[in-house]
Amino acid sequence: MKVALHGLALKLEFLKDVQALFSALEQHQFEIFVTEQFDRQLRMHGNTGMTYWLLEGREDMKSMDFLISVGGDGTLLDAVCQVGDLETPILGLNTGRLGFLATVATDKIFEAINHIAQENYQIENRTLVSLRSKRKLFNGLNFGLNEFTIHKRDTSSMITVHTYIDGKYLNSYWADGLIVATPTGSTGYSLSCGGPLISPEAKNLVITPVSPHNLNVRPIIVSDESEISFEIEGRAEKFLISLDSRSTSISSDLKLSVRKERFYARLMKLPSYNFFDTLRYKLNWGFDMRN
């Protein structure tokens, strides 16, 4: 089997964990490829004798059986862009902080690879949000796993986002911005702005205002079969839009809409994984002196 490894920033303290990952993969005779970004990180630390092939282009990625993201949730979001519509299964090895998406701890590397070698895992199809506009944005990578966001730029003045669901007027949000999050992204930026938690298998999107001026405006959950479109007004000529951690500026005359992407991010989940266990642990539910 062929496995791709992807990482954006490798701290020296985690080099021994990467060496353990290589050792575990080699024990099961996986053929190891790495992305250019991860190759640069390994070379920066002197490579330390690890043997691999360099992943070159989409044709190489097509032949991969799965990809391991080495880093935090941000690295896994970037791995989703690396894979795109190929839908290569992705496993997240967490060398970051929170680890909602990168769920494999570094002390579980050998156990994780054993499960994969024995095909003892499940694949979760995670919904992606897709951005549509007349102008090519984000170099054609117009999808995100967590959320699409409209935000004010370079001004203290709020913006107004006129929002429509399937062409029907929903609301004009007078706020710092507006988020459209997937179920996966409901534990991210949307949550910090008061949005609800949504289980990954739900067929929904959530629209969450960022610091709305009207306090009675609340997040709303809509079907992921909906098309959500926007018209933006404000004192500034430019506004920021983002897909996950990628941002760009646009002018107010650009019409935007989002809907569910036609393909999925396929995340590998090992037998010990449970979404609700992750919620309790990562959000410190139950950590109360009265308990």
Rank of each mutant, 00 (worst) to 15 (best):
E227G: 08
T95P: 10
I228H: 11
K134V: 12
N120H: 13
L205E: 02
S133F: 06
I116C: 00
L101P: 07
G57C: 14
E233F: 07
I228D: 07
L8M: 14
S130Y: 15
D277I: 14
T51D: 14
R262C: 07
W53D: 13
A79P: 12
E31M: 04
T48V: 15
T208W: 05
W53L: 11
P209Q: 02
K168H: 15
A105E: 07
T48H: 15
R97G: 02
E13K: 13
E13H: 03
G46F: 09
G92L: 02
I32C: 00
A117D: 10
V3E: 02
T51W: 05
K282L: 14
G140N: 00
K269W: 03
D253S: 03
S257D: 00
K2M: 11
L8N: 09
D253I: 11
Y173N: 01
A117Y: 10
D253W: 05
K16S: 15
H213N: 13
D288A: 12
F138E: 03
N125H: 13
T187Q: 03
E31L: 10
D39R: 13
A112H: 03
F38A: 01
A175L: 13
V180C: 07
L128T: 09
E13A: 04
V217F: 03
V70G: 11
K108N: 14
E233H: 13
T127K: 04
R43H: 09
A117P: 13
K152D: 01
L283A: 03
I232A: 06
H28A: 06
S186I: 08
S186R: 00
L42W: 05
E119K: 15
T35L: 09
S133I: 13
N146M: 01
P271S: 09
E87K: 05
I250C: 03
L93A: 01
D288W: 10
Y264T: 14
T103C: 08
T278K: 01
A202D: 06
S172T: 07
S192H: 05
V180D: 00
D65E: 12
V3Q: 00
R266N: 14
L256H: 08
H162L: 10
F287R: 13
